[in-house]
């Protein structure tokens, strides 16, 4: 599996310990999500702050924009809201739009967009195995960390298996278009599930044979320094300051 993001340069967020970045990202997203949709200029403030972080992180705008495509389903849902919501209406050209619907759409769109930018920043500056170490350091329940670690490790093995199966199907003249191909795809998925399940059993046996007792030994990574924390917490604290300012102005 390729690394989780652009890891070529050793920019400042790349050098921060993963647990610090996870806390900073989650805190920032929390502040963004909990901000009321009005006044809208707060979000402009957030966007400027995030733009500054993207600019200095070395992640590259291209990466950020191309990965923002995951937001498309949310956008589709948000665009529908002004048409289906009820309440006082505003006229925009030929369209009669619901005002609460417009605000709801704005609320979803802006928060999803900013939240996704924060997640992209975290993912593009942290490799997947480091994320697992970070969660372990943050005392996330062991079983969840183990499940996540196994997923990080085996996702490429399972996708590789799926690709080989797809190639073998294609080599025998199979085209995966239209509902007629669904039964074949469903059976392939079933086979993939059984194979992965059996692999899971073999992995477990191999772990047992090396003395596994249900707990993953803690990874011996360096703890974060207070300097790391103060660098990483600048982002959520600045965002929080903008939120506080807007609250103070609106009062």
């Amino acid at each position: 599996m390729p690394p989780a993001g652009d890891v070529s340069g050793a920019s400042w967020p790349r050098r921060l310990p993963p647990q610090v970045k996870i806390v900073a990202a989650v805190a920032t997203i929390l502040v963004i999500v909990l901000t009321p949709p009005r006044p809208p200029w707060v979000f402009l403030g957030y966007a400027l702050i995030l733009a500054a972080v993207v600019q200095s992180s070395g992640v590259g705008w291209r990466t950020v924009f191309s990965r923002m495509r995951v937001e498309v389903p949310f956008v589709a849902f948000a665009v529908l809201l002004p048409f289906i919501a009820t309440g006082p209406e505003v006229t925009l050209g030929p369209l009669e739009l619901s005002e609460p619907g417009l605000w709801a759409a704005w609320n979803i769109l802006i928060k999803a967009t900013l939240g996704i930018v924060v997640s992209i920043l975290l993912a593009a500056t942290t490799e997947a195995p480091d994320l697992v170490v970070g969660l372990q350091r943050l005392h996330v329940p062991d079983i969840l960390v183990q499940i996540l670690a196994a997923m990080v490790r085996y996702v490429s093995v399972v996708t590789g298996e799926w690709q080989r199966m797809s190639r073998a199907r294609a080599a025998r003249g199979f085209h995966g278009h239209g509902p007629r191909s669904w039964p074949v795809l469903a059976r392939s998925l079933g086979t993939l599930f059984i194979r992965s399940y059996e692999r899971g059993e073999r992995v477990h046996l191999a772990m047992l044979s090396r003395g596994y007792t249900g707990r993953l030994p803690a990874a011996g990574t360096a703890a974060a320094t207070s300097a790391d924390w103060s660098v990483a917490l600048v982002l959520p604290l600045t965002v929080l300051a903008v939120a506080a300012l807007s609250w103070w102005v609106a009062r």
């Binding site: 195995p129 697992v132 170490v133 196994a150 093995v157 692999r199 992995v203 046996l205």
Partner: peptide
Amino acid sequence: DDQLFMPTVRADVAFGPMNA
């Protein structure tokens, strides 16, 4: 792939001794 399940080679080789 059944035996090596940790994110890095070093962590995987350390798994047995740590269990001990």
